[in-house]
C-alpha cells in the first residue's frame, strides 16, 4: 500500500514539473535551500544559505557544527516543521510538505508525553493513525523490545532515567516504521556512560532494521563513532563547510589510529572556521 501511494505522489509531483528523473537521488534531497529567520527587533538572519545535500538510503549521516550553524534548522526542514525560504527539499523524490510518520523525529529533551506510560507513548502515533488496539499493542511491544525496554512499558516518563526516556523516544519514532530517523542532539542530556551505551544500541538498531539516520551532535567523537559521513557546518550564515567520509570499518574502536586521524581532521575543519568545537 505504502509503495503504491508513494509512487502516485511522485507521479503527481513530476507532472507538476517538480522532479526530473534523478535515479541516483538520495532518500532525502536538499537543493539550494535557504532559510531566513526573524531575529531581534525586526532584523533578519540567514539560518541557512544555499545548502545542498543528499542523504543516501540507509546511511548514518551526522551533522556537526557550532551553535547558530543551522543544523537544527536543517533537521526541522527535513522533518517538515518549517518551510524553506528558497530552494527545495524532497523525501523519496516527493517534495516535503509537512511532518509525517515516515520521517521520525527524536528530540534532545525527550519530548515524551508525561501523561502517558511508556507503552502509550509508543502507541501514540499508531493510535492517531487509527490502528486497532490489539495491533498497536503488539507493534509497541515490538518497538520497546527493540530498544530493550519491554519491562518498563507501564511506567510513566517521570519514573524513567534519562537514558531510558530517550530509548522510549526512539521506540516511539520507530514504531511507525519510518524510512528515516531525525535525531537532534539526542544524547546531549545524558551522562557519559549512558551516552556510550545508547550510541552502541543505536548502531545495533540501525544495522538491524536498515534505517536511514540523520543525527545532529556537537560532539566530534560522537560523530566519528557513529557516522558514515559527517557534515561539518559553519555559522553566519549557516552553510555546509565540508562533508567528511568516515571510512572506518565497524564496529569502531575509539582508540584506533584511524579514529584519531578522523577526529583530528574534523577538529581541523573547526579550527579553520576560527571557532573551536565544544
Amino acid at each position: 500500500m505504502r509503495r503504491v501511494a508513494r509512487g502516485s505522489e511522485a507521479a503527481r509531483s513530476s507532472s507538476r514539473g517538480h522532479v526530473s528523473e534523478r535515479p541516483d537521488e538520495g532518500v532525502v534531497a536538499i537543493e539550494h535551500v535557504s532559510k531566513l529567520f526573524p531575529s531581534t527587533e525586526g532584523e533578519s538572519t540567514w539560518a541557512l544559505l544555499d545548502v545542498s545535500l543528499s542523504i543516501r538510503d540507509g546511511e548514518f549521516m551526522c551533522a556537526i557544527g557550532p551553535s547558530g550553524c543551522g543544523k537544527t534548522t536543517l533537521l526541522n526542514l527535513i522533518a517538515g516543521f518549517i518551510e524553506p525560504t528558497r530552494g527545495e527539499l524532497r523525501f523519496d523524490k516527493t517534495p516535503i510538505s509537512g511532518p509525517a510518520p515516515e520521517r521520525g523525529v527524536v528530540f534532545q529533551e525527550y519530548a515524551l508525553f508525561p501523561w502517558l506510560t511508556a507503552q502509550r507513548n509508543v502507541e501514540f502515533g499508531l493510535k492517531m493513525q487509527g490502528m486497532a488496539k490489539a495491533e498497536r499493542r503488539e507493534r509497541a511491544n515490538e518497538a520497546l523490545n527493540l530498544v530493550g525496554l519491554a519491562d518498563a512499558a507501564r511506567r510513566y516518563p517521570f519514573e524513567l532515567s534519562g537514558g531510558m526516556r530517550q530509548r522510549v523516544a526512539v521506540a516511539r519514532a520507530l514504531v511507525n516504521h519510518p524510512r528515516i530517523l531525525l535525531m537532534d542532539e539526542p544524547f546531549a542530556a545524558v551522562d557519559a556512560l549512558t551516552r556510550a551505551s545508547l550510541q552502541t544500541e543505536l548502531l545495533r538498531i540501525w544495522e538491524e532494521i536498515g534505517i536511514t539516520i540523520f543525527f545532529i551532535t556537537h560532539n566530534i567523537e560522537e560523530a566519528v563513532y557513529l557516522g558514515d559521513r559527517i557534515v561539518v557546518m559553519s555559522p553566519n550564515p549557516g552553510q555546509i563547510q565540508e562533508t567528511v567520509e568516515v571510512d572506518i570499518a565497524r564496529p569502531r574502536n575509539r582508540s584506533e589510529l584511524e579514529f584519531g586521524r578522523l577526529y583530528a581532521k574534523v577538529n581541523g575543519i573547526f579550527h579553520r572556521q576560527g571557532v573551536s568545537a565544544s
Binding site: 522533518a79 517538515g80 516543521f81 509537512g98 511532518p99 509525517a100 510518520p101 520521517r103 521520525g104 523525529v105 528530540f107 529533551e109 519530548a111 508525553f113 501523561w115 501514540f124 502515533g125 493510535k127 492517531m128 493513525q129 516511539r172 519514532a173 511507525n176
Partner: peptide, 26 residues
C-alpha cells in the same frame, strides 16, 4: 511546549488529535 506539538505532528496526529490528545492533557 512546542516540542510536544511537533512530536505529535511527526507521529501522524491530525490537528484535532493534537488538540484533544496533546494540548488538552499538557
Amino acid at each position: 511546549p512546542n516540542i510536544y506539538v511537533r512530536s505529535a505532528a511527526s507521529l501522524g496526529a491530525s490537528p484535532a488529535g493534537i488538540m484533544l490528545q496533546v494540548v488538552l492533557p499538557a
